[in-house]
Amino acid sequence: MRARVPIYALGVVMGLYGVYLLLSREGSNAGLVSAGTWLVVGVVLHDFVLAPLTLGVLFLGRHLVPKHALRAATVALVVLGTATIFAIPVLTGYGRRADNPTLDNRHYWIGWLVLVVILLVAVLVTTLVRRYSKRASPHATHS
């Protein structure tokens, strides 16, 4: 415990420096309020919207997705769910501007659909391969 005191101290000093920077350099009260709002809203959205929503999707998945496909489908959910979240700024397209066609200039929803199709095919193929290999070697154990 004592050996870790310098690490605590370093962390606290870094954090306080950040708070000092925020309070001293953020030009306006409106800026501080906006930053504070973003800090709180992010946590609230994660803890009370996104996480419960994920629990709900997993619950539905357990009842709706065929048992053999559940493993691959869960992997697909991890990939698609996280990708959809970091793609929100480009998928919503709020950064687009009529005067600059070189910005946010991909067909993001088509890209998203391509990702969905690739994941669906991957789920289908791995599920079929697993079923087939299980039948081919009935004594094999699978984790």
Partner: peptide, 8 residues
């Protein structure tokens, strides 16, 4: 500023 807070 928040980067320092996060890393701290």
């Amino acid at each position: 500023a928040i980067a320092w807070v996060a890393l701290g």
